[in-house]
Design a protein around this nucleic acid. Structure first.
Lengths: 246, 246
DNA sequence: ATATGACTAGATAAGCTAATTTAGTCATAT
DNA sequence: ATATGACTAAATTAGCTTATCTAGTCATAT
């Protein structure tokens, strides 16, 4: 607060200009990382591709690692926003198979997040070993667990099996469908949408309880999820802002 | 035939001695490959570990590659025999979830075959690129397809979805459960048997039709499978013998 | 104040040679 | 006849030297 030296307007204008440039740089980083992988994407490349000088990048982030952390965080927030969007726009968004469908499809449309989830070492290179992946993965599991528990308490998921086993099964199924195309021959290729349909059907058959949830329950769950996503998103965004001012 | 110079008895005795030694050498190869991987397992190591001279190995196989092909074929035959055994000893052996259970458990107990299935490049090294893996994999798919078609025709698997999609789903599910433990944190570890139980439950819920198959049908299917396995096994064994005499 | 790009130190890669390893052979021993 | 292990040619690796790259800095320009 004491550090704000400009007028309100001037500050906001500048802030947004800076942020816009930061975004452009991250765009360049994402693009080049997908093309050449983490190891072979240099700060020089990113600067050239983003049309700024190298020094400028260091006005935004202290190190190369910081830049990529910011990139990954941005991708993660976007992923969450995308999932939230998809869930909120779907009447089936309050069911486990609906949530699974939207989470998977959003992940499939985000090459970087997919690479992290599937531990694609070709693309991630040294990033794999940078210990940000593993905590985020166990956070992922914790989220699965919380989700399943919520759905069980509402009676929209079977509760005659152990919760942890259910999480294990859900993750095995989704991971299986996410990676199987790498193993299938060309005459067994399906589109992302088709794969997600198959996953959803599998999840529904394995996890649905005898009686179908009513509309009201589905809506309540959907709302609960959406506000959870809001929490995640604002939390992450707040971290970003902290970093930016430090 | 003209090459058989010894008496019947002498020949058989010698044959079995040779075979016993070949087996010992393959045992050594398997052991060392699991320890050091394909790339770092040398013929010298194998000879020393099997207690024979290096030259002796070349009395059995023309090249290093031939030796490993023989090893992989032996593992494959053993895997098939194991699956056959497990199926024939189980009243549920004629159901898809039973078959899945036994195939998976047998695979899990065969580290080399599991490595091939999961494309474990750490263990297989250069062997991955040796083009024997890919044909065997598409053969695997063909088998899945034949199996599903058989089960559909007998009415023990749903036939209201596309067959090929069903194969895709079955493979996605089994692969998912086979590889998920690599991704799960320590507090989500389950034994092979538990994992296979979860897989079987998943498969049953996704593929079982409305009415349960009767005992007679299950028995017929089980028998059909067992004779299919016999075919595969004798075919493979015949190839081995051809190789040995050439 | 902000942005730049020449600059540097440290890391990484390329190029080369010598040393070691290893698949496969074959004269010799059993 | 069978089995062996010393042997060889080819390949792989180790060691080292030189060249190139790259993350991060900072004096200078805008």
């Amino acid at each position: 607060m004491a550090s704000q030296r400009k007028s309100e307007r001037g500050q906001t204008e500048e802030r947004s200009k800076r942020e816009e440039r930061a975004d452009r740089i991250l765009d360049a980083a994402a693009e080049l990382m997908l093309r050449w992988g983490y190891n072979k994407t240099t700060i020089d490349d990113i600067a050239r591709y983003a049309g700024v000088a190298k020094g400028t990048i260091y006005l935004h982030w202290k190190t190369r690692e910081d830049l990529f952390m910011a990139l990954m965080r941005r991708e993660y927030v976007r992923l969450m926003e995308d999932i939230q969007q998809r869930i909120s726009g779907d009447p089936e968004g309050g069911t486990l198979h609906g949530i699974t469908k939207h989470s998977m499809l959003a992940t499939m449309k985000s090459p970087l997040m997919k690479a992290v989830l599937l531990r694609d070492t070709d693309l991630l290179g040294e990033w794999t070993r940078k210990e940000y992946a593993s905590p985020s993965y166990s956070a992922q599991i914790a989220q699965s667990l919380a989700l399943i528990e919520l759905l069980r308490s509402r009676g929209v998921v079977r509760d005659d099996i152990d919760v942890r086993r259910q999480v294990f099964m859900l993750d095995a199924i989704t991971m299986g469908f996410l990676m199987i195309d790498q193993y299938m021959p060309d005459d067994f290729k399906y589109s992302d949408e088709e794969i997600v349909e198959m996953t959803a059907e599998t999840v529904e058959r394995v996890f649905a309880p005898f009686q179908q949830p009513d509309e009201k329950t589905k809506q309540e769950i959907s709302n609960a999820l959406i506000s959870t996503f809001d929490d995640i998103i604002t939390l992450r965004t707040r971290i970003d802002q902290q970093e930016a001012t430090s």
